[in-house]
Amino acid sequence: MARKAATTRRETLKATAIGAFALAIAPRLALADAASVDAEIKKLYGDKKPAEGKIKLDVPQIAENGLVVPINVEVESAMSAADHVKTVHVFADGNPLPGIASFTFTPESGKAAASTRMRLAQTQNIICLAEMSDGKLYSAKAQVKVTIGGCGG
């Protein structure tokens, strides 16, 4: 009788410990990485390699609050009917999901620039990819150090 009770207690403790460990490790495993960003880009543009330059990616070097991190993207372009920026995608390699936002521009935009605010779970890289009207791709990358993550953990 006493022996059975002891076993049950041990099992309970063991189960609790495993449960706590799983909880502790789960959010880490769920995070995206550089490979998932590459996979997203591959889904959109196949094996086309983006060039450096043209993009001005403005993010803070250090973000105190990961819940609200300002981001400003500007792509150099004449924004004429023949030569303009079509789409700008923004990705992050350390969030639960790699996507942040995608902006679609037209010649009427006048300027291929947009600002918004994003959530960052941890210190990570922001990757920006611009597609021009002639099909050329450009990319830019910047790291943001996050002091307090923004994933409601």
């Binding site: 819940l67 609200v68 996507g99 936002a101 995608s102 679609t104 600002s115 605010r117 959530r119 923004g150």
Partner: peptide, 15 residues
């Protein structure tokens, strides 16, 4: 003339 697709990584009260 402009469109933005937002993912869950966009902050609350999106700007």
């Amino acid at each position: 003339f402009f469109e933005a697709k937002w993912h869950p990584a966009i902050s609350a009260n999106p700007y």
